[in-house]
C-alpha cells in the first residue's frame, strides 16, 4: 500500500501522517496550553455564574462577597424567588412568547419568499432577488427605522420586536439555495400530477428541507430571545419588558432586586448576587438547550450561504 492512500485514513484516525516529522514536544506543549487556556476562558465564567446562582449567603461571605467556583450547600432559593411571580417571571413569559410567535412567523415568511425566488422564471422573482441581496448590503439607519416603527404605530408594542426583524435577507438566500438544490424532477412530477405551488411547497419541499428549516429557525429563535437594542428603543412600559431589559436593569446596572420584584413564594429574600446570577442563568438556559442542535447544523448552513449566495 502506498503512503498516499493511507494518509487521509490516518488523519481521520488521529495518527500523524508518515511524511510528517516527529513534533517538537515544546511546541506541542505550547499549543496544548494555548488551546487549554482558550477553553477555560469560556468555561470558567459559565461555571462560576451557575455556581454562584446556587450558592447560599454563607458561601458567598466566605468567598469575600464575590463570585464562587463551588456553591457549597446547593440552594435553589434564588430561582424560586425570581420564578414565582414578579418582574423576572413576567419577562420570561414575554420573551418566550415573542420567541415562539416570532420564529413561527419568520419561518413561514422566509420559506414562502425563498420558495418564490427559488423557482426559475417565476413572475417577479429576479427583481425581488435583487431587493433581497440589496438588503444584505445596506441597512436603513437607526432613526429612519425608528420613525418607520413609530409611523406604523408599533411603539411600545411587542410587534415592534418581531415585524422589523421578521425576514432576514441572508436567511432567505440560504433557504433559496437549499430549495434550488432539491432535484428538479420532484417539481416536474408534482406539476404533472396537478399539484399547485402551495401544495408542492407544503407536501414536498418543506418535508425535504427539515435540516435547513431547523437551522434557520434556531437562528431566528436565538435572535428573538437575545433581542436587546430594539427592545430598548421601542418598548417603553416596564411591564412589557422582555428578558434582555430585565437583565440590563438588574444585572448589568445592578438595580437592587427588592420584594416587589420577586414573587410571593420566597419567604426570606436570598442575597442579591445569587438572585442576579439566577436571572443570568435563566437568560442563558434556552441558548444552552438549543445549542447542541444548532451546533450540529450551523457550520453547514453558514457555508451554504457563503458558497451559493
Amino acid at each position: 500500500m502506498s503512503t498516499m492512500e493511507k494518509s487521509p485514513a490516518q488523519a481521520r484516525s488521529g495518527k500523524r501522517p508518515v511524511w510528517m516529522e516527529r513534533p517538537n514536544p515544546l511546541v506541542q506543549l505550547a499549543k496544548a496550553l494555548a488551546l487549554g487556556v482558550s477553553v477555560l476562558l469560556v468555561v470558567i465564567p459559565f461555571w462560576s455564574v451557575i455556581a454562584t446562582s446556587l450558592a447560599d449567603q454563607k458561601t458567598i461571605n466566605d468567598s469575600g462577597g464575590g463570585m464562587v467556583l463551588w456553591p457549597g450547600s446547593v440552594s435553589f432559593d434564588a430561582y424560586q424567588a425570581i420564578l414565582s411571580g414578579g418582574v423576572v417571571t413576567r419577562a420570561v413569559a414575554i420573551s418566550v412568547g415573542i420567541t415562539v410567535v416570532g420564529t413561527a412567523l419568520s419561518l413561514a415568511a422566509t420559506a414562502g419568499l425563498a420558495y418564490w425566488l427559488s423557482r426559475r422564471g417565476a413572475f417577479g422573482a429576479r427583481p425581488m432577488l435583487m431587493l433581497v441581496l440589496g438588503a444584505i448590503l445596506f441597512s436603513p439607519g437607526l432613526i429612519p427605522s425608528y420613525l418607520m416603527v413609530k409611523q406604523l404605530g408599533l411603539l411600545d408594542s411587542w410587534w415592534s420586536l418581531i415585524l422589523p426583524v421578521m425576514v432576514n435577507a441572508f436567511n432567505v438566500v440560504v433557504m433559496r439555495a437549499f430549495f434550488q438544490g432539491l432535484p428538479r424532477e420532484l417539481f416536474d412530477s408534482a406539476a404533472v400530477e396537478g399539484a399547485s405551488s402551495a401544495t408542492t411547497l407544503v407536501k414536498i419541499v418543506l418535508p425535504l428541507s427539515k435540516a435547513v428549516l431547523a437551522v434557520v429557525g434556531l437562528f431566528y429563535a436565538v435572535g428573538y430571545w437575545n433581542a436587546f437594542f430594539n427592545a430598548m428603543l421601542y418598548i417603553q412600559s416596564t411591564d412589557k419588558w422582555p428578558m434582555s431589559l430585565v437583565l440590563r436593569t438588574y444585572v448589568v446596572n445592578q438595580t437592587t432586586i427588592g420584594g416587589e420584584q420577586v414573587g410571593a413564594g420566597a419567604e426570606a429574600m436570598p442575597p442579591q448576587l445569587p438572585l442576579q446570577m439566577a436571572i443570568l442563568v435563566v437568560a442563558l438556559v434556552p441558548i444552552l438547550v438549543v445549542y447542541p442542535f444548532l451546533q450540529r447544523h450551523f457550520a453547514k448552513g453558514v457555508m451554504t450561504g457563503a458558497v451559493k449566495g
Binding site: A108, A109, L113, A122, M128
Partner: peptide, 12 residues
C-alpha cells in the same frame, strides 16, 4: 407562488 412570497417581501 407569488402570494406565498408576498408576506416576506412586504416585511423586507
Amino acid at each position: 407562488l407569488v402570494a406565498l412570497g408576498v408576506p416576506g417581501a412586504t416585511a423586507l
